[in-house]
Computed example of a mutant assay.
Amino acid sequence: MNHSEDNDDYNAFLKEMADVTPVKRKILADIQKSQAVTPGQQVRKAAAEDTFTDPNFLSLLNPKMVKPHDFLVWKRDGVQEGVFKKLRLGKYEIEARLDLHHKTGKEARESVFQFINDCREHELRTVLIAHGRGEKSNPPALLKSLLYTWLPQMEAVLAFHSALKFHGGSGALYVLLRKSEREKLENRERHAKRTLHGTI
């Protein structure tokens, strides 16, 4: 048999086999069973993903419950009384506002976390958060209680106080935020200059 006959036979073989699909090798191990995820595994997986990928550490569980008409007052150690008094009396300019009315706890959690971080990034110092009194929520004052629990957990927050009546009264909070590192440096430089001029 010469080469041309070999080629003819091979080409004829290829032509015959053109429509044939290869048989898939049967997998003996039952891998479907191991891939099926139980409800318990799904819950654990979701919890693990939340822990590792969500930078928002605010929790919806076990807020410190307050009443709808309670006035909320809180400040970190080191906040001067004069500064806190000005905040309480609404004497600082409100640089940004967040309205939580009609939001769920989950939506409020996202909004508060984002709002405080945005304000910090833009070097805002005094902001207003309107949360409502929650007289009809179940339990009453839920958003207000969540906010009362969350804000002290946020490093950027120095103090808060329920607002004056024209800003929402016990349904809103004045919130004082930390100075940025840049603002602190500028303050130190100004103070140093004043001290220097005072000694000349």
Rank of each mutant, 00 (worst) to 15 (best):
L177D: 08
G169N: 06
G90F: 07
K86V: 10
A159H: 08
G105W: 08
Y92V: 07
A159M: 10
A130E: 10
G134V: 00
P140E: 11
L128E: 01
E135R: 08
G134E: 03
T149D: 11
A141R: 07
R109C: 11
E107P: 11
E135M: 09
E123Y: 10
L151N: 03
L176V: 03
L128I: 06
K165W: 15
L128V: 06
A130N: 10
M154W: 10
S111K: 01
M154H: 12
I129H: 02
G171Q: 00
E123D: 13
G105K: 10
F115W: 07
A172K: 01
S170Y: 03
K103W: 05
H101S: 14
A159L: 09
A108L: 14
I94M: 15
G171A: 02
V157H: 04
S170D: 12
L143D: 01
S170K: 01
Y174I: 03
L87F: 07
L89Y: 11
L124A: 11
L142D: 08
L89K: 12
E121W: 07
G134C: 03
K86Q: 13
G132M: 04
R125A: 07
G171W: 02
K106F: 09
D118W: 09
L143T: 06
S170V: 08
S111C: 10
K136D: 15
K91F: 13
G168I: 04
F160C: 02
A96C: 15
L147T: 13
T126M: 07
L98V: 14
S137L: 09
S170T: 13
D99F: 03
I116K: 00
L143S: 06
N117D: 12
A96E: 15
E121T: 12
G134H: 01
K144L: 06
L100I: 04
D118P: 01
R178V: 09
V112R: 02
F160H: 05
T149G: 06
H131C: 00
A172V: 02
Q114V: 09
N138P: 05
A96Q: 15
K165H: 15
E110W: 00
G105T: 12
N117Y: 08
K103I: 04
P139F: 01
F166W: 08
Y148F: 15
S162D: 07
L89E: 15
G105M: 08
L87A: 06
S170A: 10
F160D: 01
Q153R: 09
A172D: 04
E110G: 06
L100S: 03
E107F: 06
F160L: 09
G168H: 06
G169H: 03
E110I: 06
L147S: 08
A130M: 13
H167D: 14
G134R: 02
L147V: 14
H167L: 02
G90C: 05
T104R: 00
V127H: 03
L173Q: 04
R109W: 12
N138T: 14
S162E: 00
R178S: 15
Q153I: 01
D99Q: 00
Y174W: 05
S162A: 07
H161K: 11
P152R: 00
M154D: 10
